[in-house]
């Protein structure tokens, strides 16, 4: 006993986590592994497909080469159409998103009911993918760019309005109070005291959304909603792989350019 007090003993084992923490960690790992196993097994994967996938892929690449550049003039107009769809759709979305944002911000909505309506519209707009909106609007307007513009607008409204509503909720109280104190009407208060505060958010997100929309518009043609997607789909279905490569290259260039432009403009204005 006296010996123990003289030569102080230190533990020779150190564990970063307590046994409970370790167990919890393993539990999580097991849960994730189980989820993975379940999802993969339920998908009924035909592993035979994987066996020759690399052969097929190589085959596809060989058929694509060399690209048929003579196809390029044909796709200039649909490429421009793609950009038009993105731009006009975004423009319509901006106009519609302002009232929706005021409707779905807690501090500017009229009452609980209007807030719930605003939130429901936000969720519906954002949850449905642009291409699925395209499917809906092709059924309404028939195939063509009008359906594409409507689809882009329908998806973007929720995106813009959500971010703007958050900005409205964070708007400085004092500026609003001061304008209220002058006897301004509610609409005037929103216009003079709230809108200037959220303007930078609106402009920034609009430009950001525009470049996302260019990318989205490149596939709207798959459901008949206009733009370059139609030509890509047609070329694939005709097994015209050399054309496919040209279309892919064109999409790549336009999407990268729009992304760069969007980043440049956003950097300039902030």
């Amino acid at each position: 006993m006296s010996e123990a007090s003289v030569a102080k003993r230190y533990p020779e084992v150190w564990r970063r986590r307590s046994p409970q923490e370790t167990a919890l960690g393993w539990l999580w790992t097991a849960a994730i592994a189980l989820a993975a196993a379940w999802s993969v097994s339920a998908l009924d994967i035909e592993w035979a497909f994987f066996a020759d996938a690399h052969v097929q892929a190589l085959d596809l690449v060989q058929r694509m080469w060399p690209p048929r550049w003579s196809y390029l003039p044909t796709i200039v107009r649909p490429m421009i159409e793609t950009i038009h769809i993105a731009t006009l759709g975004t423009a319509i979305a901006v106009v519609l998103s302002v009232p929706l944002a005021f409707l779905s911000a807690r501090n500017t909505t009229a009452n609980g009911l209007t807030w719930a309506i605003g939130r429901a519209l936000l969720v519906a707009s954002r949850s449905v993918n642009t291409v699925i909106w395209g499917l809906v609007f092709v059924a309404i307007f028939g195939p063509g760019p009008v359906a594409g513009i409507a689809a882009v607008a329908a998806r973007s409204v929720g995106f813009l309005a959500k971010l703007m509503a958050e900005a409205i909720e964070e708007a400085e109280r004092g500026q609003i109070e001061a304008v209220q104190a002058t006897g301004a009407s509610t609409a005037q208060v929103y216009l003079v005291a709230v809108l200037p505060q959220v303007m930078p958010v609106l402009i920034g997100t609009t430009i950001y959304r525009w470049d996302i929309n260019v990318r989205e518009s490149s596939v709207l043609g798959f459901v008949g909603a206009g733009g370059i997607g139609l030509y890509l789909y047609a070329s694939i279905n005709q097994f015209a792989w050399q054309q496919v490569l040209v279309v892919l290259a064109a999409i790549l260039v336009v999407v990268l350019l729009s992304e760069a432009l969007s980043a440049y403009v956003r950097a300039r204005i902030t």
Binding site: L248, L256, E259
Partner: peptide
């Protein structure tokens, strides 16, 4: 840069229709 749907269409060509 390439949209998921474009990637998907190639995957369908390589691995057949389905999940």
């Amino acid at each position: 840069t390439l949209h998921e749907v474009i990637i998907a269409i190639f995957c369908v060509k390589l691995f057949g229709f389905g999940p």
